[in-house]
Design a protein around this nucleic acid. Structure first.
Lengths: 239, 239
DNA sequence: AAGGAAGCTTGACACAGATCAAGGCCGCTC
DNA sequence: GAGCGGCCTTGATCTGTGTCAAGCTTCCTT
């Protein structure tokens, strides 16, 4: 078991020598040196192992999180256990803002995850008189909202094949922002997660992957897919 | 034709004698006298007739809107015409923020609508050094995002009957904030709008209304429904 | 290297909701 | 008040996706 990171270990109190790679993309990306140092002092750097809860729906929302490394799934459950994944969080994403005193969804790590954790009070006090920071929060919220609206269109009005294609294209483009453009799209989440994101069953997702492969649009590889015909593929995802 | 209001008529330049009823709920609800007067000077009060476009997806997003009176539908279209309504806007709602230079959805009036319209530049200049205003924008965005996430759960994981029940309960509760609690829920939007909001066809919506009426949960009245058994009804909407 | 568990794929069948088609109920206009 | 158009409802049938049930692959453990 390489690189065992025990949960909730922190490295605040000393200067982390590893430079935060996603800083420009994150909520704190436009802070200047001095302000950023003050901001850093509010943060706890927390590491989670695979499949751990960062927070859960209906818990008191006492902290917000900036994802530094790894991938998280964000989801809501119905009383009978049906699950809807409302998004996958990538490095740079900001999590945990809620319209009430409690979280409105749950978040857990897929593989290993590192976050900057901020307690609500100090965080709010830091931002409340910093317009630039508030503007940045607004940009983040607006982008999230727009993604959510795209997903509503997908969930309400697209066929299974369109859903899967649009998911792969969207995921590829989000990864491209972080890692640059690649032919192979890595899929760290499982088929069930994809199904719960797209409002499908795992069987339908599996069949649709197979179908796209038969149609020579993709090749299924371990933990991902290779897109063969980006042109035709983007068209399918858009339509 | 009573009260004919021709589109795009404005009343800025003189003090509107009618007091803005939804002010406390709106984006400007916490501005003090002096600041509010400055803010008002940026606004155009615009009146729209029924079924007019406030703005359309992919247009340059040169203005934002605070809805004062009436109801708007917000929606996205696929190239082949399939439509997803992403929300209904009520008085007090704030519209038109986009993550890029263009609107990410379309908005049009259902019946008559009055808005405060702000051009982007002056609006941004007004808020950029007013932390209270920025905080309020954040609250609005966070609430919208949470509603969008609820809707994803509905679209992806609920049955037709659950969708209709949850819609009626959600709509009733939003109206209650404005008009107080009532037994009769007014539905100014048509069946097709409800279908496009819930990811169903108009026939399924119609059949489901009829089914709920047969089961003695509601009575269908002109332009609305009366909820007979709120207990049982809320349960159906939650489950 | 064998055994097992977890995740993925495939097949047969069922069903919720879509589609196609007709008819009813207003509220206009003339 | 007759005729028309928009909206809504209802019925018959179809179909995409869900459900149920095996079987397969991969990888981890021992």
């Amino acid at each position: 078991m390489p690189h065992l990171a025990f949960p909730n270990s922190t490295c605040d109190g000393f200067r982390c020598e590893t430079h935060c790679a996603v800083r420009p993309l994150a909520i704190c990306g436009e802070l200047e040196q001095v302000e950023h140092e003050e901001f850093e002092r509010l943060a706890q750097h927390v590491r989670y192992g695979a499949k751990e809860a960062l927070f859960s729906e209906d818990e008191v929302a006492d902290a917000v999180y900036s994802l530094v490394e790894g991938i998280a799934r964000l989801y809501k459950l119905l009383p009978d256990g049906r699950r809807q994944i409302i998004g996958f969080a990538l490095p740079g994403d900001f999590l945990g803002m809620a319209p009430s005193a409690r979280y409105s969804f749950s978040a857990d790590s897929i593989g290993g995850v590192t976050v900057c954790k901020f307690f609500r009070g100090p965080f709010l006090r830091f931002i409340e008189n910093r317009p630039h920071m508030l503007m940045r929060m607004n940009e983040f919220a607006t982008r999230e909202l727009s993604l959510a609206q795209d997903q509503m269109l997908l969930l309400g009005r697209r066929s299974a094949e369109e859903k899967v294609a649009a998911f792969l294209v969207g995921w590829r483009d989000r990864l491209a922002r972080l890692e640059g453009v690649t032919k192979t799209v890595s899929l760290p989440m499982g088929r069930q997660d994809i199904a719960d994101f797209l409002g499908l069953t795992i069987e339908t997702v599996s069949r649709t992957f197979t179908k796209l492969e038969r149609e020579k649009l993709i090749v299924i590889v371990p933990d991902g897919v290779r897109v063969l015909d980006p042109k035709r593929f983007d068209a399918l995802a858009a339509a």
